[in-house]
Structure formats: structure tokens, C-alpha cells
Simulated assay, not measured.
Amino acid sequence: MIKVDRKALDKTIDSMNLFPETKKAVAEYKENANLLDQRETMLKEQMAVIQKKHTENLMNQQVITDISELIYLKKQAKELVYETNVINSLLEELSEERTAVKLKYVPIFQQAIEDDRRSRPDYHVNQMVELIRWELVKAVADLSQAMQTQQKEVSAIHEVMNDPTVKVQYPRIEYMLNTKVQPVYSESFDTVLSRYHMFAARDGQIPSDIKRPMKEGK
């Protein structure tokens, strides 16, 4: 019956760009971080290959009988351990490099966030809330007034219903006369919309006691 026109709001949401400078800084940071991630992936993949070789080497040492082959396996095992230590060292350096990159971008992010804050418009919703509240109350009042107007148009029946003889013969007629025609409204809450509801909405949350209607009333 009553709907909020969201066209202007949806247009504002679609065109909203609150963090242009921060997005640029984040994209630049991600580019650097991705290079480190790729290097880390390559090192870990190489580590997995070496560990597999090392495991196979140790198993072969247990069953080998040829001395020269055993010497070769022992030498290979030492080389594999050395390579493992080198990769672990590179991973530690990579971790330090990652920390250094993060520290580098902290002031960059701070400046970007501040630049966005200064250029970002404020989105005041008080006027929107006041307008919707007014439209809601006015719509219900208009509906009620229209119903009362139509009830008054048939007020001539009072001339008949208020007759003493009629009342004696139809004792419940007075109840019918006093029945006021008005919109049906039932609500368990003290307020239709409270500050709590608006503060929750401001934080991007819909309070649990605010439910979307299952179907529109007729």
C-alpha cells in the first residue's frame, strides 16, 4: 500500500566512492604483497620436493647394501639438508621483508585515509527519517479521514437507529452506532521506530525486532 521510493537512494549508493585514495594505496600494497606471496609459494613448493627426496633417501639408506651407493645417499642427504636450511633461511628473510613492506605502507595508508576523509561528503539521514516518518503518519491519517468521511455520508441512519422504539426492539443497535470505522493497527512495541533501531541501521545492522513483512497488506 505504501512504499518508499528508493530510486534516489539506490543511485547514491551505486555512485558512492568513499575511499578512492585508499583503494589506490591498497592496490599498490597488494601488488607488492602478491610478489612476496608468489615467492613464498615457490619456496614452499621447492621445500616439499626436497622433503620428499629426503624421505626417499632415508628409506633407501635402510635397505641399500652397496657401500658406494650408501656413500652417495649420505652425501645426497647432506645436500638435501643444506638446501632445506637455505630455504628456511629464505622464508625467514621473506617474513622480515613482508613486515618491512607493511611498515612502509602504514603512513601511506594513514595519508590516504585522511585524504579520503577530508574529501568525503557526509551522508545525513535525519531528513530522510523525518520525511518517511511524516509520510507514514500522514498516510495512515489520510486513510482514516477518508474512512470517517464515508461513515459520515451514511449518518442519516442515526435518525432511524436513535428512535426509542427502535432501540427497545433492537437493544444492540447502539453498539453498532458507536462503532468507529478506522484502519486496523496492532503493535506490541511502544514505538514504531526508536533511536536504537536507527543507530543499529547506521551501523549497517537490521535489529532483530524489525521484520520484513511476509506479504503486503491489502
Rank of each mutant, 00 (worst) to 15 (best):
I2Y: 12
T12K: 09
I13T: 12
S15A: 14
S15E: 14
M16T: 06
L18A: 15
T22S: 09
K23N: 14
E31K: 11
N32R: 00
A33D: 14
L35Q: 12
L36Y: 03
Q38W: 03
Q38Y: 05
R39W: 05
T41R: 07
Q46G: 10
V49P: 03
Q51W: 09
K52V: 00
K52P: 02
K53G: 07
T55Q: 04
N60P: 01
I67D: 04
L70P: 00
I71Y: 06
K78D: 15
E79W: 00
V81S: 07
I87R: 03
S89L: 06
E92F: 08
E93G: 00
E97L: 02
R98N: 00
R98F: 00
T99Q: 10
V101I: 01
K102F: 11
K102Y: 14
L103I: 12
K104M: 02
Y105C: 04
P107I: 10
Q111C: 04
Q111V: 13
A112W: 02
R117L: 07
R120E: 00
P121H: 01
Y123N: 07
V125T: 15
L131Q: 07
R133F: 05
K138Y: 15
K138C: 05
A141L: 13
S144F: 07
S144Q: 14
S144K: 14
Q145G: 05
A146Q: 11
A146E: 13
M147A: 12
Q150F: 04
Q151C: 09
E153H: 01
S155M: 13
H158Y: 13
E159M: 01
V160W: 08
V160C: 04
V166M: 07
V166W: 03
V166A: 05
Q169L: 15
M176F: 15
L177E: 11
N178R: 11
K180W: 07
P183Q: 08
Y185M: 09
S186I: 12
S188R: 08
F189M: 12
F189T: 10
V192L: 14
L193M: 15
M198L: 15
M198Q: 12
A201K: 02
I206S: 04
D209E: 11
I210D: 09
R212L: 13
E216N: 09
K218R: 10
